[in-house]
Amino acid sequence: MAVCVAVIGKDNSPKYIRCSDETAALQFHYKVHTSIDIIEEKLNTGNKMAADVRELFLGLLFSTEEHKIFGYATNTKIKFIVVLQSTNASLRDNEVRMIFRKLHSAYANAVCNPFYVPGDQIQSKGFDTAVMEIMGVS
């Protein structure tokens, strides 16, 4: 299951970031942050080729010995980043896509809250629950 889930705003600052292991949170922050490099690059080249029908799922951004980092960018340039354990080889591309789809709809629900101001940190119990589910913590 995922070890870290992050939502990055369109200004590339974190709107939500949650790790299963809070003691290693800083390392995950750095990892998620550095993967923005690749997301930006992918989004830029994507715009050049086909701006209209863009695949939101960006695929594997980065893999280290321990972790695999997957990315997803909405049309409003909100980015989702999920870090999976490399040892978890059973997780296929399609399942990762499903994770992102779940995350996207949870995000959409969270920002539909009329008291949420776009650009703020996400503080939503519903979103927390969805993320916990993705991380398999619940």
């Binding site: 800083l26 922050h29 750095y30």
Partner: peptide, 10 residues
């Protein structure tokens, strides 16, 4: 400029 408070603090 990155506005990542956690990293900045570190």
């Amino acid at each position: 400029g990155e506005r990542w408070p956690g990293l900045l603090t570190d």
